[in-house]
Structure formats: structure tokens, C-alpha cells
Design a protein around this nucleic acid. Structure first.
Lengths: 236, 236
DNA sequence: CCATCTAATTTAGTATACAATTTGTCCGCT
DNA sequence: AGCGGACAAATTGTATACTAAATTAGATGG
């Protein structure tokens, strides 16, 4: 699995370190590395076919993004998220999605609005058909475009990492809430198009809070169910 | 200037890379490295007496914080801030200071509030005497403590880097606005103590916006004055 | 079973070498 | 004189090897 060869010109980042960071980010976000998993430099080095230098660089990058824990002298591990941190993340993201929606409503770039309409249509179809991969991708695309529409580079950057980290919280029940999700997306976009800053901000903030509530509730249920039946196969 | 020896046990961070990052951060924030200055790995390596590895680590860290530019294959330089980025920073920071003040008013930790009162007193005295170093330090301390009072680790982390970057914008006229600054600090703290979330949020947000307005105005004046008289000694 | 000592693993850092790329300079050409 | 391209210098990106320090795991003995 030599990424130097497996992805030679696919997305030229100009640096192996960034490619490694992208690879690991994907592994973490798709859940193939679970929270707490250790990321040993030597192992990654041989597995990915690069020296330890780019590996270390990638690990620092991901640590800065909050995706990996990196205690001194103790090595990297996939960041575990406590309930407290999850709530903190949601609180901040909700506020910033509100700010961003307000800015988007203020500027109203027609090109981006058109793209948002496009994504909204596809999202609604995906919610009908229930394709989870499409739902995840389109949800990501919608919030991405919306962040672009806000036209604030600082905000865009912060929201990118915030979305990544919250996606781990929300991942479990994207499918279950998809209809409500896309209904809310639709209303947010309508407010943005209307230039109604207050409403756009309110809806975007509430959207995050409601999605979080649902996710937390689902997680609690799963935890209870697991507690009742799961202790036999804890290590699976 | 070997930092490995010059700061052996002063503030053990457990990692040379972090010490280097701290050093460079201070150089940048105190203005001893101006925006655009190149940060060449070899030079820093010999000057600080460490190998290139911790230097690179530090540069990545600072790049993640937004204090240095790090284009691929082109080397690091102290981040320059355009007027656009400054406005974006202020917009986001104003919103997050608002959120944080709201959270601080909600929780109202007595210990931190006591510390805030302490800092407020010292700040008012410094505003009277006009000691710039003290003003900078105490202003930083006030916002630091206030961020603690919000009790949101994610928010705390984001606001830390945001404060660093905006401090570069505000640095010029901290002295000029000190009385109004500390008057506003006082009102924010009062609202926090009252548990008045709405008022605390409003005042904190407005505090940032007003400080920014003043700083932008001062910068514009300086630019005009410089345009009229300064082209003779451009390079100084 | 617990404490402790030891050995293996792993990270942190140094030194060095080299390839790739960017940047700067110089020279000839128009 | 100005411009474009070859050439050289500087700098980053990566690999490799080695040392040191710290943590983890295991073995040993009480």
C-alpha cells in the first residue's frame, strides 16, 4: 500500500506530508480508524511506503485539526470525543453556522446560490432513495457551499475542521434524520435567497442544535441497548 | 542564542518543537518579525541551536494557527494580514466573544469571576498610568480569564488563536483606547456577574467591533500620514 | 496478588545526504 | 536598453541512520 505510487498525480498536493494527512483524515472520518486507535509512526511509515518524516508532519497537522491526540512522548492516537467535547463542538458550530448563514444572506452570490439549489435537489432525491453514501456526501457538499457563500475565509477554515469533528458525532444517524435535514436545508437556503439575515442565522443555528439533539438521543439509546446485550462481545 | 540551553527548565513543554513555536510566536506577536519576513529553516536552525526537525514542526504549528504562511516548496514567512482577512477575523472573533460571554454569564464560576475583578482593577489602574506593556498584558489576561469562564474547551482554543491574530490588528492603538476598553470590560463583567446572558453577549460582541473600528480608523490615518510624508524612508 | 526491576518498544531529536523545485543571476539576442 | 532563456544558488522535501529518553510490557521475586 504505497501511497507514493498509488496516488501519483491524482491530487497533487506538492508534499507527501499532506497526502499522508489526507489519507489518515479519510481513514478517521470514514471510521476505519476508531477513536483511541494508536497511530505508530513506524507502522504507518512501512504501510504507506514513506519515511517517518512526512508521517510525523501529517500527525501534527491532524493534531492541530483536533482529529488525533498527540500527548508528548506518548505517541499519536485517534482522538476520542467525550460527551463534553461533543457538546462544546456543537455549541460553537451552531453559533458559527448561524453567523455564516447570516453572511450568506447578506452577500447572496448568485453563482453559489445556484449550486446550492442543485445540491438541495440531489439531497432531497437521496433522502427519498435513502442512499447513505450519497446523503453523507451531499450533506457535506451543502454545508461546504453554504460556507463558501458566507465569503469569510477565517470562518470557512474554522468551520471546515468543526464540520469534520462534528461529523463523527452525527455520522451514526444521518440516514434516520435525512428528511428533516433536507427540509431544514431547504428553509435555510430560502432565507438566504430572501436576504433575511436574522431568519437564516436562526434556522442554521437551530439546524445544528436539532441534529445534535437527535444524534445524542440516538447515541444514548444505542448505549443502553449495548449495555443490555453487548457485554458478551465487547472486543468486536 | 541556543534555546536548548537558554531555557532549560523555565517552562518545560516536553518538546523542543513547542519551545521553538513559543519563541517564534513571541517574535511575531511582539513585532520583532514583521509580516512577510522569511523564516528559513537552516537559519533558524543554527540561530536557535536545534536541528531542522523541531523547526519544521514549529513552523507547521504556527501555520495552523495562522501566524505564518507556508506555501508548498516555497518556505515559511510571517503571515501578512490583508484588510479583508482582518475584517473576517474581527467578525468571527466578535461573534465568538459574544458566545463566550453568554456562556460565562450562564455558568458564573465564582473563582474565575474573582480573578476577573482583580484583573479589572489592575487594568483600570494601568489605563490611568498609561503603561503600555501592562495594558497589553492585562488586556490579554482579561480576555484569557473570560474565555476560561466560558468553560468551553473548543471555544477556548479557537479564541486563543483568534486573539493572537487580532492582537496584531489592535496592537497599534491599545493605549489610545485604554479607558474605553476597560470601561467596556467592566460592563461586560457586570453583565456576566448578573447572569444576564443576552447583555453579556451583546456587550462582548460590540466591544470587539468597536475596538476594531477604532483600530481600522487609526490605521487609515497612519496610512494617509505616511503617504504624505513617508515615501522618503520607505525601507525603515 | 502486588511491587519492582528489567527489557522491548516507541517517540524525540540530531546529523547527513540527496532530489526536486523555486529563485536569482547572468549572458546573449533583438 | 530591454527581454528571454540557460545556468547556478538557495531552500525545501524526503530518506536514512543513529542516539537518547521515556513509556509500556513483561518477568521476577516477595
Amino acid at each position: 500500500m504505497n501511497i507514493a505510487r498509488s496516488a501519483p498525480a491524482s491530487h497533487r498536493t506538492g508534499s507527501l506530508g499532506r497526502e499522508v494527512a489526507d489519507q489518515l483524515r479519510r481513514l478517521i472520518l470514514t471510521g476505519r480508524c476508531k477513536p483511541g486507535d494508536r497511530l505508530v509512526e513506524d507502522k504507518l511509515s512501512t504501510e504507506l511506503g514513506v519515511s517517518r518524516v512526512p508521517i510525523r508532519e501529517a500527525l501534527r497537522t491532524l493534531a492541530a485539526e483536533g482529529l488525533v491526540d498527540l500527548p508528548p512522548r506518548r505517541g499519536a492516537s485517534v482522538a476520542a470525543m467525550s460527551a463534553d467535547v461533543a457538546r462544546d463542538l456543537v455549541e460553537v458550530r451552531a453559533t458559527l453556522e448561524g453567523l455564516n448563514a447570516r453572511l450568506a444572506a447578506r452577500h447572496g452570490d448568485p453563482a453559489i446560490v445556484a449550486e446550492l439549489k442543485q445540491v438541495l435537489g440531489e439531497g432531497n432525491r437521496a433522502a427519498q432513495s435513502g442512499n447513505v453514501d450519497d446523503l453523507v456526501r451531499l450533506n457535506s457538499a451543502f454545508h461546504d457551499k453554504l460556507a463558501e457563500a458566507g465569503r469569510n475565509s477565517i470562518l470557512w477554515d474554522i468551520m471546515r475542521t468543526l464540520r469534520e469533528r462534528t461529523s463523527l458525532v452525527f455520522a451514526a444517524n444521518t440516514a434516520a434524520r435525512s428528511h428533516q435535514d433536507w427540509d431544514e436545508h431547504s428553509r435555510i437556503l430560502a432565507a438566504v435567497i430572501d436576504g433575511d439575515e436574522e431568519l437564516a442565522a436562526l434556522l442554521a443555528t437551530r439546524h445544528v442544535h436539532q441534529a445534535a439533539e437527535a444524534a445524542f438521543a440516538a447515541t444514548r439509546e444505542a448505549a443502553q441497548a449495548g449495555e443490555a446485550a453487548g457485554s458478551v462481545q465487547r472486543s468486536a
